[in-house]
């Protein structure tokens, strides 16, 4: 199957289990489609250069820097954003753990951190602290100094 599109074309993106039809230009990034077309603003734009991880989402369960990923490439894939982690009012274990560990200061990096950590625990349910550092290697935080974020992931592992 080949889908041919010119300029703005009709695309459906599946975000957190819901299909969102939209018009997209080829050059639109996934971050922009999620924030401006779907209207979910938990995913942040930091560097817009694939360096800081504030825009991290999961595509088919794997972490992706959505600032530097074409939205049209995500057709037919399952996209998960920070809004998809909680079950109603019930926070995910990682969300609860980062609150309890005090791993949030300004909060700008938090959604990306949680998406990377979610992907990490999905592929490695009991990582060492060193493996957690590698798993969060693509996420920058300019407030906390990382210690409490790492503590939070360790906490989520132990309460599982």
């Amino acid at each position: 199957m080949t889908i041919d599109m010119n300029n703005a074309s009709a695309v459906t993106l599946r975000v957190n289990g819901t299909d969102y039809p939209m018009l997209l230009e080829t050059e639109r990034n996934l971050l922009g489609a999620i924030r401006d077309e779907v209207g979910l603003t938990g995913t942040k734009e930091g560097c817009d250069d694939c360096e800081c991880g504030a825009c991290m989402v999961l595509v088919d369960g794997q972490p992706v820097n959505s600032c530097s990923y074409l939205a049209v490439q995500a057709q037919g894939r399952e996209i998960t954003t920070i809004e998809g982690l909680a079950d109603g009012q019930q926070l995910s274990e990682l969300q609860a753990a980062i609150l309890e560990a005090g791993g949030v200061q300004c909060g700008f990096c938090t959604p990306g951190m949680l998406m990377s950590a979610t992907a990490l625990l999905d592929r490695n349910p009991s990582p060492t602290r060193e493996e957690i550092k590698v798993g969060l290697g693509g996420n920058l935080c300019r407030c906390t100094g990382y210690g409490r974020i790492l503590d939070a992931v360790e906490r989520a592992v132990t309460i599982r």
Binding site: M1, T2, I3, N6, E25, T26, L70, V72
Partner: peptide, 16 residues
């Protein structure tokens, strides 16, 4: 600007 998703090698080589 155009964008296509190839699912076979032949489709990709034809587009290229």
């Amino acid at each position: 600007m155009s964008f296509a998703i190839a699912t076979t090698l032949d489709q990709a080589l034809a587009a290229i």
